[in-house]
Design a protein around this nucleic acid. Structure first.
Lengths: 303, 303
DNA sequence: GAGAGCATTAATTCTGGCCTTATCAATCCA
DNA sequence: TGGATTGATAAGGCCAGAATTAATGCTCTC
């Protein structure tokens, strides 16, 4: 009879591209993986994966074990979690995915605090440039800026997030005045091009319901928010940045808001929850800490 | 994280009436159970069952682990079975339930043969006086004489089985002749009273579609087929027995068929299959051997 | 052809889970 | 009251699984 340890061992190996990689994942040496896998195979009497020097491929039986085994592991994890929850202790492993810049600056400290608060839990913070495209299910929470309806994913808002049109003082000097979004046509606009979205269409609206949609011609564009911000700081043009990103610079006066009465659509900070796992207490606690940690907008808390 | 061995350990304990009984089931000493259970409880951080000197009772969490755990164990078993089946090997544990007399005489040898044929498989033959009332799911095949429609159980016929009206030569000497079922009114009838069935209504039919239903007044009755047969052998009266039971005695002349042209309803040998487990190869093979082993009716094979 | 990376085999070590024995306390029953 | 059963605890031993080290062959790349 197989044991759940055998199964989870195999699942890790099966999801690796080589035995050596699997060994690194599990912090053991390569022979350990070879031996254990071979022992497993002789025990069940059938080859589970074909080894070759350029990657491993699962046999039919391997696919079976991976698929069935994963549901078994999930069931065991759920049971363990349910027990932990009953004791009001926070345990187990939590995997968070977040965008690079935002994650490093705002999520990492919260993960730090979480880890200090709940010693028995372990956390992985995975920073990704495409956080919404996690293909495997090795995640519990994905933090994302901007609402997004992905089918099959549960979304919850963590914090509001406004976006501002900003520029450096240097840039604005001697440039034509900006009184209406239409005036942007005479300016250098810097665009953040990511997720294949239509990023050259900027939508403005005033409190008085007046609207204006401007198709900009980006003078420069990048897919890295920090670079974009740096360009803006360097006075290369106007950019739309979320308040999280530029709060400190607005406070220090390095950047100024442009067209402050014209609002851009909000892109709230949201979290996607993996529906495959039952919600565990550690997930709830982490969401709680995220909401709490993100609550005071940086615009207000900036010194 | 729990392991499947922890879970199956706990499931065994949870289904026992005391830790000591659990220890006996698992062929270990009592302290082993005590401390392993304690270790498990401290690991999950919650008490799973309350011990007392007269029995153990599950806590809420214990119930949870038992219920969820059982499905996990089942899933692991299914996976293991599927792998075994792919290798065309017969492995694992098979649990057969059969009625006492029939099981001892006809099923046990087949189980013996099965065990010789498939060394890697283990078999338990559980003889029960109420085989159809297995309340727990610790069985794979229930052998039963007489068709029976139990909802949720899969039934398959193993062998045909006729029933004969028999008596000993001694008994028949000097008794009124039997030419028609009605004549039974003048005879001592022996009834097998089991399963709360209506056993005093004997239905006869000839090949020519002639029918006769007789309500007998049993002179003696019992719920044990062997006792009934012994009574009949001892010349205490007439009884209805299945051909399996009396084939040897008919062949030796100790018993004779009475009213041979009047047939009694057939009560075939059937097998119920547990639908909770996926059908494994060992189950298929066992059914195969059962059909093969029961094929030549004892009436014909009797020397 | 050197070197890096990967898989495998063999031999050895280790360790932690699990078991046993021994002992004691509590309860039930004859 | 003594015996039987059950459960808890302490102390010590054992062993199978799993790891490590060392060494070899293979393939691909530079």
């Amino acid at each position: 009879m197989l044991s759940s340890e055998d199964i989870s061992f195999f699942c890790v190996v099966a999801r690796s591209r080589s035995l050596a990689q699997a060994a690194r994942k599990m912090n053991v040496t390569a022979p350990a993986v070879t031996q254990r896998l071979r022992a497993l195979e002789t025990r069940v009497g059938v080859r589970l994966l074909d080894r070759s020097l350029n990657g491993i491929t699962l046999t039919d039986e391997g696919e079976l074990v991976l698929a069935e085994g994963q549901t078994i592991i999930d069931a065991v994890e759920n049971l363990t979690d349910q027990l932990s929850d009953r004791t009001n202790t926070v345990r187990g492993h939590l995997q968070i995915v977040a965008p690079y810049g935002f994650g490093r600056r705002h999520i990492a400290p919260i993960v730090d605090a979480f880890s200090r608060e709940y010693h028995e839990a372990t956390v992985t913070l995975h920073l990704s440039d495409t956080p919404t495209r996690m293909v495997n299910d090795n995640w519990d929470i994905i933090v994302h800026i901007g609402e997004l309806n992905s089918p099959g994913r549960l979304m919850t808002t963590l914090a509001p997030n406004r976006r501002f049109l900003v520029a450096s003082r240097d840039y604005l000097k001697g440039k034509p005045p900006l009184r209406h979004p239409h005036d942007l046509a005479d300016h250098r606009c810097l665009a953040l091009r990511e997720n294949d979205e239509d990023v050259t269409l900027w939508r403005f609206a005033t409190a008085g319901e007046e609207q204006a949609t401007i198709r900009i011609a980006p003078a420069m564009s990048t897919n890295d928010g920090e670079i974009l911000r740096d360009w803006t700081l360097a006075g290369l043009g106007l950019a739309v940045r979320s308040e999280w990103d530029v709060a400190a610079h607005l406070a220090s006066g390095a950047l100024v808001r442009v067209l402050p009465q014209w609002n851009l659509p909000e892109t709230n900070i949201v979290a996607f929850l993996n529906t495959r796992h039952n919600r565990s207490k550690r997930t709830s606690k982490m969401l709680e800490m995220l909401r709490k940690g993100l609550k005071p907008t940086p615009w207000l808390q900036a010194e």
